[in-house]
Design a protein around this nucleic acid. Sequence first.
DNA 1: ATCTTATTGAAAATGATTTTCAATAAGGGA
DNA 2: TCCCTTATTGAAAATCATTTTCAATAAGAT
Lengths: 152, 152
Amino acid sequence: MDRIDQWVRVLQKSGCRITAPRRAIIEIIANSQRALQPIEVYHLSKQQYPGIGLVTVYRTLDRLEELGLIRRVHQEDGCHTLMPAANGHEHYLVCTGCGRTILFQGDDLSALFSRVETKTGFQVNEHWLQLFGICPDCLDHKVVIEKEARHA
Amino acid sequence: MDRIDQWVRVLQKSGCRITAPRRAIIEIIANSQRALQPIEVYHLSKQQYPGIGLVTVYRTLDRLEELGLIRRVHQEDGCHTLMPAANGHEHYLVCTGCGRTILFQGDDLSALFSRVETKTGFQVNEHWLQLFGICPDCLDHKVVIEKEARHA
DNA sequence: ATCTTATTGAAAATGATTTTCAATAAGGGA
DNA sequence: TCCCTTATTGAAAATCATTTTCAATAAGAT
């Protein structure tokens, strides 16, 4: 069963109805190689379901985020982009050249957390780790091409 | 020399003029115990310099961020808040009860980075780590009081 | 086939941030 | 100290992202 089927099930279980616009949005996000802004999701979904409205995109994204299926990815300029959620100790690695974003298996940081707890008196509940770098393709000087494609 | 004097010097060196509204903004941010939104900086600065305009706040914050003196702190709902910048391996630890934000000395994550580089082919350039938890005061059930104060 | 109710898109409202512009004032130099 | 250049200012308007409202539609249970 692929990711899209999984997401559809989670949506249905939570009482959501599966509609054509939702299906389009889900497919776009689930298959994207990089984190997308709502407006980008809108434009891409429109190719698949031309009648779609931007409001529906916002509403569906909210729903998917509530259900833990997608998550915000933070960029230098803000955090309005979304990607399929990471699990466990996975975190995002964002290419600052072309935007391609992958997941990597992170360390277990619990040792750090208990050290911080002892030192600060805070009770640490969550953490947020993200890496930025240059992907293999951009290292091979494909930067310009990718960037152009992104703005097309 | 305290932080404010340092900031003033950096601003002057970069060709900025030191004005009363700027001084007010700088003092607010430099002395804050938590990350502030532009609109909060505006309201607080107004107590010190009533004529100040919101636009000036935005412009000054941009400048301070460009110069590396302040930095965005990301919260669950976005990343429009700002704090004095961290140095070296320092990172933010945000109290989700009252918003108080402190810096902690983080681990050297370079071992993790080279592992990720080997595995993914990416060249890792930057990282972003933030912790969320409950501060000692909020653990002592002062949560309600602090939250009220925050919205006053 | 029917019925309940979640979902839809358009339009309007809201909220945050940026741009424009003429007036002001910082701070270097005479 | 007094100019003079030019960065900075605040107000108003413009822009951009997101949310709310609402009547029409359609999903999926019965």
